[in-house]
Amino acid sequence: MKNKNTIIDIAKQTILDESEAIANLANLLNEDFTKTVNFIHSSNGRVIVTGIGKSANIATKIVATFNSTGTPAIFMHAADAIHGDLGNIQKNDVVICLSKSGNTPEIKVLLPLIKNYGNKVVAITGNLESFLGTHADFVINSYVEKEACPNNLAPTSSTTAQLVIGDALAVCLLEKNNFSSKDFAKYHPGGSLGRKLYLRVHDLIDKNELPVVHPQTPIKDVIIEISKKRLGTTAVIENDKIVGIITDGDLRRMLKDNLDIGSLIAKDIMGKNPKTISVDAMAAEALETMERNNITQILVEDRSKYVGVVHLHDLLKEGIF
């Protein structure tokens, strides 16, 4: 390694170089960025993102971010575009071209063809004087002073800059489209993220038993009910209302205090004013309530009626953590 730098030294310098390049992008934003966002927002078409080499790789991620945040987008490789993929472009589509130099042969061939179709072109380039920079309808400056690569050759800082600009465009469009967490859930139904956004308490309680005792229930029967329903707890119900809760912990504390089990009833050891949650609440909200109150079970109500129990294990099984 040059200059006997350690691996950590090199890694730190790479991160610092790229972070400095990204920070400088904020100084390069101009009215064309605003015009780009407004034009995409008002258009009736999709966003076509294209590039060559490493810029093409970044383009695919930008497309993924657009699609997941409510802006329909497709990727078109600049090389494939001039060999048939131009057919992807429809009348009202907006084309974003990524190129550090702005002078690659594929871009020079592609750009006039797109313009002939009447589509607007947005350039994300580090060279405003390039072919792309001077022929695009909107130009977003992605200039970086140097690559993180010590030879200033491998696309590193420049591709990171392109990616950040893509994220900035996506977030601005998200805001203009009033894209909410509910909208986000529609596009992310899979994985733990999707479950956090759409899974509700009522989706969990159907899998569980409904442990119930009453204030006058003997402790022996309380123990049987908790063991039988296998949730580590039971609700204490009176006149169809929740008046208390008994957990495994309450039973252990009772035994530790050497109380006369034969004479005890549920109301003697139950916790009063237990935490409850609505059957329509998000599962993630149930987890937040448990964590906030340091509990592992929570009773569920439907219009003040006791309808079930959610255990921490239910949430862990669903990936809500």
Rank of each mutant, 00 (worst) to 15 (best):
I140H: 03
L128G: 13
A170Y: 04
T125K: 10
S130I: 13
K146P: 04
T134F: 11
L173K: 03
Y117Q: 15
L173G: 04
K120Y: 15
S157A: 12
H135M: 13
A136L: 09
P112W: 12
F179D: 02
A123F: 09
P155G: 01
Y143W: 07
E129M: 14
G126M: 12
P155Y: 08
C149H: 04
D137G: 11
L111F: 08
F179N: 07
D137Y: 10
S158D: 01
V122I: 12
L173Q: 00
V144G: 03
L173Y: 08
N177R: 15
S130M: 13
V144F: 04
Y117K: 15
V122N: 04
L128F: 11
A154R: 10
G166A: 00
Q162K: 02
F138A: 04
L111I: 13
Q162L: 03
P112E: 12
N116L: 15
Q162D: 06
K115E: 15
A148G: 01
D137W: 11
K108H: 08
F131S: 14
E129A: 13
N119T: 08
E129I: 14
N152S: 06
L110V: 12
F131L: 12
N141G: 02
L163E: 01
P155K: 03
V139D: 02
L174T: 07
T160V: 07
S181N: 12
F131T: 11
L169M: 03
I165Y: 00
V164H: 03
P155M: 07
V139Q: 03
P150A: 03
F179Y: 11
F131P: 11
S180Y: 05
V122T: 07
C172A: 10
K176S: 14
Y117F: 12
A136T: 12
A154S: 13
K120T: 15
S181G: 05
G126H: 13
A136D: 11
V164F: 01
L174M: 09
F138S: 07
L111R: 09
A136I: 09
I140M: 00
K146N: 10
Q162W: 02
N141Y: 04
S142V: 02
G118P: 06
Q162T: 02
K115Q: 15
Y117P: 07
Y117S: 14
I124G: 04
V164A: 06
V121S: 10
